[in-house]
Amino acid sequence: MTPVRSLARVMLSGIFVVSGARNLQHPGRLVPAAKPVTDRVTPLLQQVSPRIPTDTETLIRANAATQLVGGLMLATGKFTRPAALLLAGTLIPTTAAGHPFWNSADPAERMQNQVHFLKNLGLFGGLLLAAADTEGRPGLRWRAGHRIGHSRRSVARAVRTARREARIAVRSAATARRLPG
């Protein structure tokens, strides 16, 4: 991993590690803002499994734990692509609950929430780039396509060789028939 990638990942993950740890310890302060979002998500979670806890504080803790673990994975360079996708997924409810600028009547509060919303949108973009970064190595799509192309060329080469050997065998057999014996 290059020093620039390492530094960028540490810098990108910092907000998730810090806020994840803070929100894991003190989720109560976020309940009023998160309640409208968790109330909309609860029916979907119950359809997936009735055993999933749906109270707002537990969902905040789960999101915080995911951000903490995902941030640490991204910072340490372990499973960085899945970690970046995981963190991007946690930003969606966090941003919707924490910065709904469209609901603010006060212009100053609206502007503040809009700035934080756009900041999170920028973080989301950075996480998508981190998720797509193959560190200069070919990605799975390229490797699969390359392997298929290699296999096709190998098969075509084997067919050409078999045809050539068949022609040689036919010529040899014809020559053998003509020889007195």
Rank of each mutant, 00 (worst) to 15 (best):
R167V: 12
H26I: 10
G70D: 08
I15K: 02
E165F: 10
A156D: 13
Q46Y: 07
H146P: 00
L179K: 12
S6D: 09
H116W: 08
A144M: 14
L86F: 07
V17Y: 05
M1S: 10
M1C: 07
P180L: 11
P36A: 04
L179C: 11
Q47D: 09
L45E: 06
F79A: 12
A65F: 14
V10Q: 09
P43W: 08
L7Q: 04
S49P: 05
A131V: 05
K35L: 12
G77K: 02
T95R: 08
T161H: 11
G126E: 04
V41H: 01
A75H: 06
L68P: 01
S154E: 08
L129D: 06
L72D: 05
L30E: 02
A162K: 09
P100Q: 03
R110F: 02
E135Y: 12
V115F: 08
A174C: 10
T161P: 00
A21P: 05
F124G: 02
R152G: 14
P100C: 05
I52L: 15
K78V: 13
L44H: 13
S19Y: 09
R143D: 14
A176V: 08
A33K: 02
I15Q: 03
A158H: 12
G181T: 11
L129F: 13
V18H: 05
N103V: 13
P3A: 14
V17D: 02
A34C: 07
W102C: 01
R171G: 13
M1E: 10
L140G: 10
T2L: 15
T66K: 12
T56E: 00
R61T: 09
N103R: 15
R9F: 04
V48E: 08
I15C: 02
T134K: 14
L140P: 00
A132H: 07
R153K: 12
A83Y: 00
M73Y: 05
T58D: 01
L118R: 04
L7K: 06
P180Y: 11
V159N: 02
G14P: 01
I52F: 08
R61W: 09
Q67L: 10
G125Q: 11
N63P: 05
R9A: 00
T56D: 01
A169P: 03
V10C: 07
R171P: 01
L128C: 12
L44N: 08
R40I: 07
T134Y: 11
H146T: 12
P138G: 15
G125H: 09
H99A: 04
A132V: 07
T80I: 00
L24V: 15
A131K: 03
A34N: 00
Q112N: 07
A62C: 10
F124M: 14
L45T: 04
G77L: 03
G89K: 08
L179H: 11
G70P: 02
S6Q: 13
L86Y: 03
T94E: 06
I60S: 01
G139W: 13
T42N: 01
A65R: 08
V18D: 05
K119L: 05
I52C: 03
D106P: 00
R152S: 12
V155K: 09
L59R: 01
S154K: 09
N103S: 11
Q25E: 13
